[in-house]
Design a protein around this nucleic acid. Structure first.
Lengths: 247, 247
DNA sequence: TATAAACTATGACGTAACGTTAATGTCAAG
DNA sequence: CTTGACATTAACGTTACGTCATAGTTTATA
C-alpha cells in the first residue's frame, strides 16, 4: 500500500511540512516519486517514521537520528529494545521530578526542610553533567569550547547513558577498593574512567593525574565522591597515579 | 542569601545565557541589580525558576509560562499540584509508547499483527487533535488558519487537557442518552460540547448543526464515535438539533 | 600592590526544526 | 468543464537559546 503525504501525516500525527522537511534533509525519503512530482510512501516508510518519532520523543537531534538509522548495521529490533530502556529511564526521571514537586509542596506548607540543591532534583542529569564539565575547565580552559560542542551534540538519551556510565565507572572503583589501587581491578576501573572522559575531553596521560588530584582537593568534587564512599576520591587519585606511572 | 548568575545556573542546571535571556524577556528578573551591573538572585528567584523549569519540562512556551506565573492570582502550591497531574499524564503517555514499542517488536518478530494506526499509538494525543481539526476544515476552510494558530499556541499540557475534556464531553452525551436528546442533561452536554469547540473555533449557532451532521455522515468521525457508543453520533446530532432550534 | 584568572555585562550573529504564506501544477468528483 | 482538495517548491518567520567578541569587575595569590 502507498500513502500520499497527507495520508501518512494523518496516520503519524505529524504535519506535511515535517514530512517535506524530512525528505529534504534525507531523513525520510519517500518510497517513490510520481510523474506528477508527488511523494509516495510505503509500509517501510511507516516503520521508519515510527523510529524517527520515537527518537524525536527522546530528544535526539534529527541529524543524529539520520546517522543512526541510516547505518548499514542499524537493527530495528535492537533499536526498539533501546527505545524501551530509554523511555523507562525517562519515566524514572519524571518520577523523581514528581517527588521534587511533592517535596516542594510540603516545604511551602512548612512541613519539611528543603535545600537549594534538592529544589532541582529530577533535573540532576544536567546538573551532574555540569560538574563533569567543570572538572575539565579546571585543567584546560581551551577544552571548554570543545567539550561544550561535544556535550551539545549528545542527545538527552545519550547524556543519560553517559551519566549512568559515569556512575558505573565510580562503582567499579568502589568495588576494587579491597584489592588496592594497584590491583588489576582498580587499573581496569581507571581504563574505564579514562574512556568515560572521552565524552567530554580526550586527556593526555599527563593530565589524568591532575584531574584525579582535583577530585581530592576540590571541595565540591570531594563532596560528590564522599557521598559515594568516604575514601573514594583518594582511591581514584592513587589508582590513577599507578596507572600514569605505568605509561 | 543571594546568588550570582553562575551560582544559580549551576544549582538549576541551566546556562547563564538562559538566565540572561529569561531576564531579557521578563520571565525571571533578578532580585536586584548591583552597582556593577551584575544580576543578583535570591531564594524567591530559586523557587520561581523551579516553576519555570517544570513548565518548560511540560513543553509550555516561555511566553505562556510568563503569563501564567506572572498573574496576581498565581498560587504556587496549586500550580505544583497541577504539575504533578501533568507529569503523571506524561508517564501514562510514555507507558503507552512503551506498549507500542513492545508491540512493534512482537510484530517484527512475526508474533502479532499490527495495524498502521496502532504503529503510532502513544502519539495519539496529536492524532486525535488532527481529527478534531479536520472537523473544522470540513465546514469552514477559513477557520483552518485560525485554528492552526490557536492550536499551536496551546502547550502540550493544555492539549492533553483539551483532549481529556473532549472525552468528558462525549461521555456526558452518552450518560444523557437514556433521558433523550431534548433532556436538560443532553442540552447541558451540548453546551459543554460547544464550549469545547472554542479551543479550535468559535462556531456560530448555525454551524453547529452542520458539524453535528458531519459526525453522522463522515465515515471517519462516525467510526470514532461508534467506538464510544453505537448510537452516539446520531444522538449528538439530535441533541444539537434541539439546541439550535431553541436559539 | 600588581597580576591573572574567573566572573560579569551587552551586542550580535547563528542554529534546529519546523510553521506559514505565496504561487502554481495535479487529482477527483459533480 | 469547474471546483475544491491535494500536491509541489520557494522563502520568510519563529522560539529558545548557543556562541563569540569586547570590555568592565571581582577574587585570590604572589
Amino acid at each position: 500500500m502507498t500513502y500520499t503525504v497527507k495520508q501518512i501525516a494523518r496516520l503519524a500525527g505529524v504535519s506535511a511540512r515535517t514530512l517535506r522537511y524530512y525528505d529534504e534533509i534525507g531523513l525520510l525519503k519517500p518510497a517513490s516519486l510520481g510523474e506528477n512530482g508527488y511523494r509516495y510512501y510505503d509500509e517501510d516508510c511507516l516503520l521508519r517514521l515510527q523510529q524517527i518519532l520515537i527518537f524525536r520523543e527522546l530528544d535526539m537531534p534529527l541529524e543524529q537520528i539520520k546517522r543512526i538509522t541510516g547505518r548499514r548495521d542499524f537493527d530495528i529490533v535492537i533499536a526498539l529494545q533501546g527505545h524501551k530502556q530509554e523511555l523507562r529511564k525517562r519515566i524514572v526521571q519524571m518520577e523523581r521530578l514528581i517527588a521534587t514537586v511533592e517535596r516542594t509542596i510540603r516545604h511551602l506548607q512548612g512541613e519539611e526542610e528543603m535545600s537549594e540543591q534538592e529544589m532541582f532534583e529530577g533535573f540532576s542529569e544536567e546538573q551532574q553533567a555540569e560538574y563533569e564539565k567543570e572538572a575539565m575547565e579546571m585543567y584546560d580552559p581551551e577544552t571548554v569550547k570543545a567539550s561544550n560542542a561535544r556535550w551539545r551534540a549528545y542527545s538527552a538519551a545519550e547524556k543519560q547513558r553517559i551519566f549512568d556510565e559515569g556512575n558505573a565507572v565510580y562503582k567499579a572503583f568502589i568495588d576494587s577498593m579491597p584489592q588496592g589501587p594497584a590491583s588489576p581491578q582498580a587499573q581496569s576501573a581507571v581504563e574505564g574512567w579514562r574512556r568515560h572522559m572521552d565524552y567530554f575531553w580526550t586527556p593526555a596521560v599527563e593530565q589524568l593525574l591532575f584531574l584525579a588530584q582535583g577530585y581530592v582537593d576540590e571541595p565540591r568534587f570531594r563532596a560528590t565522591f564522599d557521598k559515594m564512599h568516604p575514601a573514594l576520591a583518594e582511591f581514584i587519585r592513587d589508582a590513577v597515579k599507578v596507572y600514569v606511572q605505568g605509561k
